[in-house]
Simulated assay, not measured.
Amino acid sequence: MSGKQVGVQKSSIQEGIAQDIQGAKLTSLAKIPELILELQTGRVDALILEKPVAQQSWHDTSLHYTATGVSEYAPSYR
């Protein structure tokens, strides 16, 4: 994820996780729909969301998601 623009919800656990990703550039926004729009328009390369939020958000879009464990990028958040 180094050098990639990563979108997260402002003041969330996911924002803290993203801050631990070495070399990632963060976009922190208040609302999930704003983040999805950022991804759809290519302003961010990836989003970090809770799995249920991602599943619901992607239900109505043509985007695909990959579920990964937090420990993959930020072991301190296990």
Rank of each mutant, 00 (worst) to 15 (best):
I21C: 02
L35T: 02
L26F: 11
S76V: 11
L63C: 11
A24P: 01
L37I: 11
Q22R: 11
A18Q: 06
Q56N: 09
L26Q: 01
M1Q: 10
V6K: 01
G23H: 10
G42C: 04
I48M: 12
L39Q: 12
I13S: 09
L26W: 06
S62W: 03
G42M: 05
G23E: 05
T27H: 12
I17H: 00
K10W: 05
P75A: 08
S76H: 10
A18D: 01
E50G: 06
K4E: 10
Q22D: 14
V6N: 06
K4S: 10
L63V: 07
I17C: 00
D45A: 11
S62Y: 06
S76G: 07
M1V: 14
H64N: 12
L63N: 07
G7L: 11
A24K: 02
G42A: 07
A54Y: 06
G16W: 11
I32F: 13
S11W: 11
H64R: 12
Q5K: 13
Y77C: 03
G23Y: 03
K51H: 06
A18T: 09
I21N: 01
Q40R: 14
P52A: 08
E38L: 05
L29Y: 00
L29C: 00
V6P: 02
G69Q: 14
Q56S: 14
T66A: 10
T41I: 09
A67P: 12
E50I: 04
A74Q: 01
W58T: 09
Y65I: 10
Y73W: 05
E15W: 05
V6H: 01
Q9C: 01
S12R: 04
A30H: 08
A74H: 02
S2Y: 04
L63E: 15
S28Q: 13
W58L: 15
Q14G: 06
K31I: 01
S71Y: 03
T41Y: 10
E38F: 05
S76I: 05
I48R: 03
V70A: 12
S28G: 14
